[in-house]
Design a protein around this nucleic acid. Structure first.
Lengths: 245, 245
DNA sequence: CGTCTTCTTGAAGGTATTCAAACGATGTGG
DNA sequence: CCACATCGTTTGAATACCTTCAAGAAGACG
């Protein structure tokens, strides 16, 4: 439960993620302004909560390293996973609306995040016009992302959802310089199922089927994509987009 | 196809929707600044497109009167409804991310909208700090709304989705001063189904069942909610929220 | 008034879920 | 280091739910 907090000097302008994270497209001068916003870097261990649903919204968080899920609790005690986040991605934008975090954010592996106090962000945004536009874009893209998930949940069958999910992970990993076709799942079958609106057994069965077809190789959490084409063909005709998530 | 455009003098500061729409919570002075942003009011007839997916993003649109749906086209030619919008609500925020509208926006009845050119909005936001915060809140709430739909699609059964849908409509209508328990559906069964991830037959059957149970009265598009309690009980335990949509 | 669209309802079928059991991996304590 | 408990996963069989196919009824519109 306790989040071990370490104060680490962080500078957007020197961060290896600056081409991927919030600074994308900012000029050097504006970028340096961002440095002043970041309060500190924070380390979390697998299973730690970054923030809880219902807490007062204070900060956005950018992931430096690691992997997170966000979940919303249901009245009957079960959780629904609303998203998976990896390095360079921003969490907490749902909190702006009502000054309360809607989601829990939980580390799925040891992770490190940059904390961006929203009050300071707002302040900076006023002084740096390019950042204002940029930040609105990021929020809009979160909307687009969520709408793509809506389409996935509303239109696709289990096979198609899993295919879209794997392709999306693959693409995001590739963007970060990792292998696109050989990776380790950071989440359990149950978490995948929760995200995709399926039961864990269905996820397991469907992965097994992909494995039998020779489209992927599954060994526990180790996934290899052997025939991306086949997966893409499954998804095509459903959402029209391979960047669903 | 052609959108008949009428130039109507519009003033946020004198609009009856100012407590509901973008101006919510703005001070008088800031409110008057908004007037300068609105290019014109635009009338649409039932079936008219307000904007098309793929078009260059130029403006946000606030609904003065009427009712809209937004849809995303799938590769195989079918549409998925991503939202229903009524007076005081803002459409087009998905366009900010990539300067392209992601959705089609289509009037489901004769409607009137205020056009807010985004370039002017950005400009104004720089000069009016309270509007900046306010606008971010609105975007965040769109994110929350979409995540609630995700939960609905991922967790709920047909009955629960319909119940949540009806309760949400009811609540939004009430907010606008209409009867909460007696209203006309603006959309077809197929459009409801598309939005809820169900087939139109399932929507029809489920409404009939609610009717038989005495929870609602259905006469074609005329809906009366007779036992809101029963509908709420259905939804409870699934999302924990009655403001799903 | 006739045509077209939308809606309702039934029956058959398919897909994902539920229930259940067993396996494997992981981690703990003896 | 091994035995054991636990958690996550796989797989099968039965079931539930929604969809598909089909036909008829009711409004909407010209």
């Amino acid at each position: 439960m306790a989040n071990p907090i370490l104060h680490i000097k962080t500078q957007c302008s020197e961060c290896s993620l600056r081409e991927l994270c919030l600074p994308v497209g900012l000029h050097k001068h504006d970028l340096e302004q961002l440095n002043s916003v970041i309060r500190q870097s924070r380390r979390l261990k697998k299973g730690d909560y970054l923030f809880h649903a219902g807490e007062t919204f204070v900060s956005l968080f950018a992931i430096r390293t690691g992997f997170f899920k966000t979940t919303v609790g249901t009245q009957d005690g079960r959780d629904q996973v609303t998203g998976f986040f990896m390095s360079g991605e921003l969490m907490g934008m749902d909190g702006i609306g009502n000054n309360i975090y809607i989601n829990d954010a939980i580390a799925l592996e040891d992770s490190e995040v940059c904390e961006l106090p929203f009050a300071r962000m707002e302040d900076l945004v006023k002084r740096v016009p390019s950042l204002q536009t940029h930040f609105m874009r990021l929020m809009s893209r979160e909307i687009i992302r969520d709408q793509n998930v809506m389409m996935m949940l509303g239109n696709m069958r289990a096979e198609e959802r899993l295919a879209a999910f794997l392709l999306n992970l693959s693409q995001r990993l590739q963007t970060r310089g990792f292998a696109a076709n050989d990776f380790i799942l950071r989440m359990s079958r149950e978490e995948i199922g929760s995200y995709l609106g399926l039961k864990l057994e269905t996820v397991s069965r469907t992965l097994s089927r992909f494995n039998q077809e020779g489209w992927i190789s599954v060994e526990h959490k180790h996934i290899q994509i052997l025939q991306a084409r086949a997966l893409k063909d499954l998804v095509a005709g459903c959402s029209g987009k391979s960047d669903v998530i």
